[in-house]
Amino acid sequence: MHELSICRSITDIVNRHAGDKPVQTVRIRIGELRQIVPETLTYCWGLVTEGSALESSTLEIERVPLAIRCSSCDARTTLSSPILVCPECDGTTVEIVAGEEFLITSLELAEV
């Protein structure tokens, strides 16, 4: 379960950036191509933050769908499955333009 180690890394980053201010919400963006299960990540967040300054914080996850751009016809398409073929022209020379993201987008800090 690599989500546990991911949560530990997220808490390290959040603690460095939040300083002494209490954190209410941590927002992250995860692309569909990442091998991360959002429900498992949320569960692990509870485990990793238990008994820490982040215990009352919540993890908000935004999923980013897989999108490609076809080099042949220049169509940009959001895909529902990771089959990298242009649905417009059946071209296989495509560029992934979304779906590989993994980043912390913002922290919501409590007023002190």
Rank of each mutant, 00 (worst) to 15 (best):
Y43H: 02
S5K: 03
I61H: 06
I13K: 02
P82N: 04
L107N: 05
I36W: 00
H2Q: 06
I6Y: 03
I61A: 08
D12Q: 14
V14G: 06
I68C: 09
R34Q: 11
S52N: 04
V97A: 08
R29T: 04
L103N: 12
F102R: 09
I83R: 13
R16H: 07
D20C: 07
M1I: 10
P87A: 07
V26N: 07
T40S: 11
P65I: 00
I96L: 10
R69T: 11
E95H: 08
D90A: 14
L47G: 02
G99C: 05
G51S: 07
E3H: 07
I36M: 00
G51Q: 03
I83Q: 12
L66M: 07
Y43V: 00
C7P: 01
E111D: 15
S57V: 02
T92E: 14
I10G: 10
S57G: 03
R29K: 11
C73N: 10
A67V: 08
T93Q: 15
E62A: 14
E32V: 02
T42V: 06
E50N: 13
P22K: 15
S72T: 15
I36A: 02
C44S: 04
C70W: 10
E55R: 12
D74I: 09
L103V: 12
C86P: 13
T77D: 13
L103P: 00
C44W: 05
I28Y: 01
D20K: 15
D12T: 12
T77Y: 05
H2E: 09
E108C: 08
V14E: 09
S80N: 14
E111C: 11
A18P: 07
S57C: 04
A75N: 12
